[in-house]
Simulated assay, not measured.
Amino acid sequence: MNKNNKAILFIGFNDFRDFKRGVENVILSQVGAIENRDIYYIYNSKNCFEEYTYEGIKCIGVPGRMLRYVYPSILARKLKNKYKNVFIHSHNPLSSLFLLYKSDCLTVHDGLYYTRKYLRPKISYIFKLLEKLTYKKVKNIHYISNFTRSQMVSTSTKSTLIYNTTPIEKEIKKVKEIKPNKYLSSKGRNFFCVRGIQRRTRIDLLIDLAKENKKNKLEDKIFVAGKGELLEFYQNKIINEKLTEYIELLGFVADDELVNYYKFCDAVIVTAESGEGFGLPIIEGYLFNKPVFCSKVCAMPEVIIDKSYMFQNDGNAIFNCINRYNFNSEYYYSYYINNYSNKVIQEQYKNKIYKR
């Protein structure tokens, strides 16, 4: 028996070394709320079994689809033999379904049925059944927004609402101040957007906004950080429509670069069509005391500071929404600190999930 006698096993998807946003961000914020436990993390490896330690977390990568659903039970069994108390916190609903033990907590970012009915509508009913079965295999459900809860298949399992926070808060002090010229347009206002370049994130709306700015002879520029399958397609579209002075797709942006873009921009824009269970760039904008404008969809209406900062998904509507505002307000940062800071969210994890 281990001298600590306590462990927590996180079941996720991706390697911490390659992914730092989305699910992985939430797991790291939950780790920050845990005291006096050995922490393990199992994820989907690309090629082979691998083990390493990341920020005190013992990480285990497992290859192969079937093995990914079998090995969590093997590891859980090993840990239960080694420790007196093992808390299983899953972020992977299918792994929870096939686990030989009940997960103590399942964090739901977007329900299985909700995501699959858009991606694979013909067989979405299968995922509806799988989601129902999964909830019977967990003791507590943590959902990241009321919108996410509303899209989940109906369940009587005990559930807890805790919003997300951002790891960028810890990165700010580590980043060296860089001359702002690189992060600013030479003339007009600068808008920053962090998005995966996918259909659901509606990058086309930002291109439409760039056209509106050009038509109205505004010298504003939009910087978009993110990668995805449509990156090259939209980059070519921007070049062909002669909009390079008005919008730039940056591709992958490292954390230090990300911090500086947030720091030196005038405002943040978040566009989406579906699949936005929370809206992380919204609170990151507030962390840097910036106004944030976003689509009126998914969970974003419950995260935004005021619904007047929201727009319908139309280039002209975005243009009109943005140009109604004076950008000199100073209360965005306090809104972040009081509602979404690392300290506030981690206290909720401690009291609502781990201590209980």
Rank of each mutant, 00 (worst) to 15 (best):
V292I: 04
D306L: 05
I269M: 08
S159L: 13
Y234N: 07
Y332F: 14
L130Y: 06
N320R: 15
V344P: 06
T157C: 11
Y325P: 00
K182C: 05
T148Q: 01
Y335C: 09
N14V: 10
L205G: 02
K58P: 00
I74R: 10
L79Q: 03
C265P: 07
K214C: 10
K221W: 11
N4V: 14
G111I: 00
N260H: 12
L243N: 06
I126V: 15
T134H: 04
V108L: 01
K58G: 10
E273I: 09
L250Y: 11
P180C: 13
I8S: 12
E51Q: 14
V138P: 06
T201N: 14
D255I: 15
K187A: 04
R37Q: 12
K352F: 02
C298P: 00
K187I: 07
S329N: 14
F252R: 12
A317I: 03
M1I: 10
N81E: 11
S96E: 07
L130W: 04
R202F: 02
Y71N: 01
Y336L: 01
M1W: 03
K80L: 02
S185A: 12
L112C: 08
N2D: 12
Q312S: 10
S150N: 07
S274A: 13
F19K: 15
M310D: 01
F10M: 06
L100K: 15
Y325K: 09
S95A: 15
N81F: 09
E177W: 03
G64P: 00
S103W: 01
H91M: 04
G22Q: 02
G228N: 00
K6S: 13
I39W: 04
N14I: 08
K355D: 14
N213L: 11
I337K: 14
V224A: 00
V270C: 04
Y143F: 15
V70G: 01
H89D: 10
K80Y: 00
S154R: 11
I172Q: 10
N140Q: 12
V303R: 00
D18I: 14
T160R: 03
K158N: 13
K84R: 14
N338C: 07
S274M: 13
Y246N: 12
K20E: 15
R202L: 01
K350V: 00
N342T: 07
S329G: 13
R324V: 06
Q346V: 01
I353P: 03
N313G: 05
I57M: 12
F13L: 12
I60A: 00
D314M: 04
Y286P: 04
I172W: 08
G228C: 08
Y135S: 05
V175W: 01
I337H: 06
D18S: 14
K217I: 10
L100H: 13
M152C: 11
Y69G: 03
K211G: 02
K242A: 09
Q30H: 00
G315K: 00
R21S: 15
L106K: 05
K78T: 09
L112P: 04
T53C: 11
E35I: 14
R195D: 05
I197L: 03
L161A: 09
S103C: 13
T53M: 07
E302Y: 04
Y125T: 11
L133A: 08
K158C: 12
I247N: 01
V297S: 05
F10K: 03
G226H: 02
R149P: 03
S308L: 02
I203M: 09
V270M: 07
N342V: 08
F293A: 08
H142L: 15
Y335Q: 10
Y349T: 02
N260Y: 03
